[in-house]
C-alpha cells in the first residue's frame, strides 16, 4: 500500500462518509475504517473524560511516587526509587500489607460462601410444595429484605454501630460473652489490640453478605427449573444439586462477585479509620492516608498507592485466570 493511500485511509477516520473519496470507499479496508469511525466518534466524549480523570492521574501517580513531594508546595525533587527502597524496609508498610492481604483472602471467601449458601437456601433449599421442583425456605422474601438491610446503611453508620458493639465497656459483644458464661473470652480492647483485624473482617463480611445474597439469587433464578427437576428425578441430594448444578451455572456471577469483594477488602478504609484507634492496626489505604495527610509525605504515600495498585491488578488478573472455566451454554 502506498503512503498516500494510507494517509487517505487515516484521514477517512475524520471525514463524514459523504466526503470520503471514492478511492477509499472502494478499498477493502474501508469497512473496518467505517466501523472505527462510527465507534470512535461515539466514544470520543467519554474517552476524553476517562483519559483526563482516570488515566492521567494514574500516570501522574507513578511519577509522583518517585519524588519527595510533601503535598504542601508545588516544589519537589526527583528521588528515583528512594521511596520504594524505603517501603521495602518499612515494617509498618509490611504489617499494613499483611492485614490487607489477610482481608483480601478471607473476606471474599467468607462473604461469598455465606452469600451462596443463603441464596441457595432462598431459591432451592426449601421443602417442595405445590408440585414445584424447587422452592426456597419459608419466608424467603422476608429474609431477602433483612439480608439487604446493611447494604442500605452508610458504611460510616455501620462502623459506628459496630464500634459500640465491640466497646469493652458495656459493649454487646463483651456483655453477650458474659451472659453465656464465656467470661474468659472477654477482651479489654477489641479494636486496639491483636484481634482488630478479625473484628474488621467480621464487620466487612456482615455488611456485604446481603448484597451477594440478592446478586446470587438473581443468578440462580435464571437457572431453568427443568434442570433441577431432571436432577431430582435422578435422585440428587441438595448438596449434589448445589455443587453440580447451581454453582457451575452461576459461576460467572460468583467470579465477578469475588473480584468486587476483593477490591472492597483491599479498601476497607472507612471501617478502619472510623473503628480502629490511631495506635491500632493499619491497612494499606489507611497507612497511605496517614502518610499523605498526617505526615506530609505525599511522595511516599503515592508509592504506597502504586503498591496497592499492583496488588489490586495482580489479584484481579489472578482471579480471572484461576476462575476461567468453559462457559456453559443454556
Amino acid at each position: 500500500m502506498r503512503l498516500g493511500h494510507r494517509l487517505l485511509l487515516g484521514a477517512a477516520l475524520f471525514l463524514p462518509p459523504r466526503l470520503t473519496p471514492r478511492r477509499v470507499r472502494d478499498s477493502r479496508h474501508y469497512r473496518t475504517i467505517d466501523q472505527y469511525r462510527f465507534i470512535g466518534w461515539f466514544l470520543a466524549a467519554p474517552l476524553v473524560v476517562y483519559l483526563v480523570f482516570v488515566v492521567s492521574p494514574f500516570v501522574q501517580a507513578f511519577f509522583y511516587s518517585m519524588t519527595d513531594w510533601t503535598g504542601y508546595t508545588a516544589e519537589y525533587t526527583f528521588t528515583g526509587t528512594a521511596n520504594y527502597e524505603r517501603m521495602w524496609n518499612d515494617d509498618k508498610f509490611w504489617e499494613a500489607l499483611r492485614h490487607s492481604l489477610l482481608l483480601l483472602v478471607f473476606a471474599p471467601l467468607i462473604t461469598l460462601s455465606l452469600g451462596l449458601f443463603f441464596a441457595f437456601m432462598l431459591n432451592a433449599g426449601g421443602r417442595r410444595r405445590g408440585g414445584q421442583a424447587v422452592a426456597g425456605v419459608a419466608g424467603t422474601r422476608l429474609y431477602k429484605i433483612f439480608y439487604f438491610f446493611p447494604q442500605v446503611l452508610s458504611i460510616a453508620i455501620i462502623a459506628v454501630i459496630w464500634a459500640r458493639i465491640y466497646s469493652p465497656r458495656s459493649g454487646v459483644l463483651n456483655e453477650g460473652l458474659s451472659a453465656v458464661g464465656l467470661d474468659s473470652l472477654r477482651q479489654n480492647d477489641w479494636l486496639g489490640g491483636r484481634f482488630a483485624v478479625w473484628c474488621i473482617l467480621a464487620v466487612l463480611c456482615w455488611s456485604f453478605v446481603g448484597f451477594y445474597v440478592v446478586l446470587f439469587s438473581a443468578a440462580m433464578s435464571a437457572i431453568p427449573h427443568e434442570i433441577y427437576e431432571a436432577s431430582l428425578l435422578d435422585g440428587a441430594t441438595r448438596p449434589v444439586t448445589f455443587f453440580r448444578i447451581t454453582l457451575p451455572l452461576s459461576w460467572g456471577t460468583v467470579r465477578t462477585g469475588w473480584i468486587y469483594m476483593g477490591i472492597q477488602a483491599l479498601d476497607c478504609f472507612a471501617l478502619v479509620s472510623i473503628m480502629v484507634p490511631e495506635h491500632g492496626m493499619d491497612v494499606l489505604p489507611s497507612y497511605l492516608y496517614d502518610k499523605a495527610f498526617r505526615d506530609g509525605q505525599a511522595g511516599y504515600a503515592t508509592a504506597i498507592g502504586v503498591a496497592l495498585f499492583a496488588v489490586t491488578l495482580l489479584f484481579a488478573g489472578l482471579m480471572m485466570r484461576l476462575a476461567r472455566r468453559e462457559r456453559i451454554e443454556l
Binding site: L43, L47, Y50, V52, S56, P57, V59, W69, A74, Y76
Partner: peptide, 29 residues
Amino acid sequence: ALLTRTAAASLLAVPALGALTSCASGGSG
C-alpha cells in the same frame, strides 16, 4: 478487539496529556 485497541490508543494518547501531568502540583506562584 475494540477494547484492546482502545486501551492501546489511550496509552498512546498519554504523552499528549503531558500538559496535564503538572496538574496536582502545578500553578505555583
